[in-house]
């Protein structure tokens, strides 16, 4: 393993210099780049990278890398925000993950995005540990956008439960994932269940998934024994069944992400903050698995996304 500083952010004189580091493993080939936190509340994303760096170090020492495969892990570019408890860039509230491919003569976050992108753009495969724009938790899954540039459905090789695809919106054209694809990399985003909370079990599942992908792509020895993946269901984001709130109030969820439901199952309630009377039962629009839950926020307004369900014909309650 070699640790190299990719970019040093200087906010002198009132804050000290902040390095953005990459951890390099294996050979000289640019096989896989992994980017962790680009937002200041992406703690789980950094934690996944930390566990991955531990695992890759051991695999490297054991001689399990093959075909001159080289991997870089960049755990975080968000220290400037994270150290002051902000999700976005504290100076101007810009989002690094809306600044790609970046610009070396541009604004601060454009320069930071440019430095990261220049480092990772030539890698054959790219994985970003991403977070959603709404607070909440997901079933751990892989996703990519249908940009027209995506090379294959290798996403099944992660062995996570879902591989989600979706059509990009104009706002997505400045994300790392989109630009990776445009510049020729096989790019995926992985949602490791939580964002601003560390979930060790989900993090270990994601690390195992990344290692399975590396083995599948010939970066690690084929005989390497890894935890078994599971059958991956491919789902289009447009097919998720959403439940929006029909009232404003406080919300409490009876069920959690990953639970199975029938059509009409009560997933949660919105209640009047002052009288505790139920204003709305949040019922599942179909049978299936709860894919996303807005579980991290008590107060909700009308017309907010509460949860989404992956439709399944025959429900098996686990």
């Amino acid at each position: 393993m070699e640790k190299k500083t990719i970019f040093t952010f200087s906010a002198l004189p009132y804050r000290q210099k902040i390095p953005v580091d990459g951890y390099y493993f294996g050979g000289q080939a640019k096989s896989l780049a992994i980017v962790g936190s680009t937002r200041g509340d992406e703690y789980q994303q950094i934690f996944v990278c930390g566990l991955l760096i531990q695992a890759l170090k051991k695999l490297e020492e054991a001689g399990d890398f093959v075909n001159d495969a080289g991997v870089v892990v960049i755990p975080s570019a968000s220290q400037f925000s994270m150290n002051v408890g902000k999700r976005f860039w504290p100076m101007d509230n810009t989002d690094i993950n809306r600044m790609f491919p970046g610009y070396d003569q541009g604004e601060t976050t454009q320069r930071l995005a440019n430095s990261i992108f220049e480092e990772v753009r030539s890698y054959e495969n790219g994985i970003q540990l991403a977070s959603f724009y709404l607070p909440g938790e997901f079933v751990p899954h892989v996703r990519y956008m249908n940009t027209g540039y995506h090379k294959s459905d290798d996403g099944m090789a992660f062995g996570l439960q879902y591989l989600m695809t979706r059509e990009p919106a104009p706002i997505d054209t400045t994300t790392l994932n989109y630009n990776w694809q445009v510049f020729g990399s096989n790019a995926f985003s992985i949602y490791a269940k939580s964002t601003d909370r560390i979930d060790p079990k989900a993090a270990r599942r994601v690390v195992a998934a990344i290692l399975r992908y590396m083995r599948y792509k010939g970066m690690l020895k084929a005989e390497l024994k890894l935890p078994a993946g599971r059958e991956t269901v491919m789902i289009d984001g447009a097919d998720l069944r959403k439940k929006l709130s029909g009232a404003g109030g406080f919300v409490h969820f009876n069920l959690k992400v990953g639970d199975y439901v029938d059509e009409g199952t009560v997933v949660g309630q919105i209640f009047d903050p002052f009288t505790a009377e139920c204003l709305e039962e949040l019922k599942s629009p179909c049978s299936g698995q709860i894919f996303y839950v807005r579980s991290e926020q008590v107060a909700v307004a009308e017309h907010e996304l509460m949860f989404s369900v992956t439709p399944i014909e025959q429900v098996v309650v686990i």
Binding site: G248, G249, F250, P273, A299, A301, E302
Partner: peptide, 11 residues
């Protein structure tokens, strides 16, 4: 016009 969580509307 939409209801906010506590005793207010967004208009």
């Amino acid at each position: 016009r939409l209801k906010l969580p506590v005793s207010e509307e967004l208009a």
